[in-house]
């Protein structure tokens, strides 16, 4: 039996060396390759070209050099969009990951009903991006919404949170933190990978819970933290639906929820300044690529790979 397998392996390797699978690969990859060229690569380059033109869909693109970029960098609303997006990303993502890790730690104590809790906490992640939840949020944090009803019960008078320029963005951050379930599931999977003997050894050596967390759990979990961080940052930069629905498509009140993508949409598909929108699109790509690169570089200093 083993001999037959060996012969088979040798023969198939021999055949591969002779012909390779080039033809078969061409067939299997044809749809993907067509998509890569037509739907991804070509539009990517086209948008770079368009970012140097004045284009409104009606007439042919008109080369204007770096005008879109200079306009962009002297546009206060562009800076506002950057500010809103960065605030949102760098406040809500760490909070979301902290919540995810904390809950994963609690759930990873071998307690009964793990599957049930995991489902309950995970559900918001699935629904969070939908228009329906954005509508719900708009009501929950509205002037006579659920939050204020609860506050009124305690005798506190709330604001119309979503229509107050100081708080509207905060309500969207809360929404993002609310969807901590997806990273939590990933953390849970990571925690399960840590060998129990590490903890046993540590506790025999007299390490308390906090020291076990500091010196075992956290270092061994850093690859997962890193993975979650990269994913959630990239995702958070692209937030659109919630801001669009909660602000009625305006990014208001007073541009306080003018997310980058929302402004891009407004420029490209509201006022048909396709050139400007393309410049914004490429700048977004640079931000995300740059941030991901910094993340990977910085990871050398804090991510610990145990192999």
């Amino acid at each position: 039996m083993a001999v037959i397998q060996e012969v088979a392996r040798a023969r198939s390797i021999g055949r591969e060396r002779r012909k390779g699978d080039g033809k078969a690969a061409a067939v299997f990859l044809a749809p993907w390759f067509a998509g890569l060229v037509l739907i991804t690569a070509f539009p990517l380059l086209a948008s770079l070209y368009l970012s140097f033109t004045d284009y409104s869909l009606l007439a042919a693109p008109n080369w204007v050099g770096v005008e879109n970029y200079t306009a962009m960098f002297s546009d206060p609303r562009f800076y506002q969009a950057l500010k809103v997006t960065f605030l949102y990303v760098f406040i809500s993502v760490p909070l979301q990951l902290a919540a995810a890790l904390a809950l994963a730690m609690v759930l990873d104590k071998g307690l009964r009903g793990l599957a049930f809790y995991r489902s309950v906490y995970y559900l918001p992640s699935l629904l969070g991006g939908s228009v329906a939840i954005a509508i719900l949020w708009r009501q929950v944090f509205g002037a006579d919404g659920l939050v204020n009803q609860v506050l009124a019960f305690f005798g506190v008078e709330g604001y119309g949170w979503v229509s107050h320029p100081d708080y509207a963005l905060g309500t969207l951050m809360v929404l993002n933190v609310w969807t901590f379930g997806a990273p939590m599931v990933i953390f849970l999977a990571g925690l399960r990978q840590i060998p129990a003997m590490y903890y046993e050894a540590a506790s025999i050596d007299g390490a308390g819970r906090w020291r076990q967390f500091r010196n075992i759990t956290l270092p061994l979990l850093t690859p997962i933290v890193f993975f979650n961080l990269v994913l959630q940052l990239i995702g958070a930069f692209q937030t659109f639906t919630q801001a669009f629905i909660v602000s009625g498509g305006t990014g208001g009140p007073v541009d306080s929820t003018l997310f980058y993508t929302l402004y891009l949409y407004e420029k490209g598909f509201g006022s048909y300044q396709m050139g400007y929108a393309s410049a914004m699109a490429w700048f977004l790509l640079l931000i995300i690529a740059g941030m991901t690169a910094v993340n990977f570089l910085a990871s050398k200093f804090w991510v610990f790979y145990d192999d």
Partner: peptide, 15 residues
């Protein structure tokens, strides 16, 4: 995988 749809949406729309 990491490419945001927003970066390519304008040319896609034109196409």
């Amino acid at each position: 995988i990491m490419l945001p749809i927003h970066v390519i949406i304008v040319p896609q729309y034109i196409l």
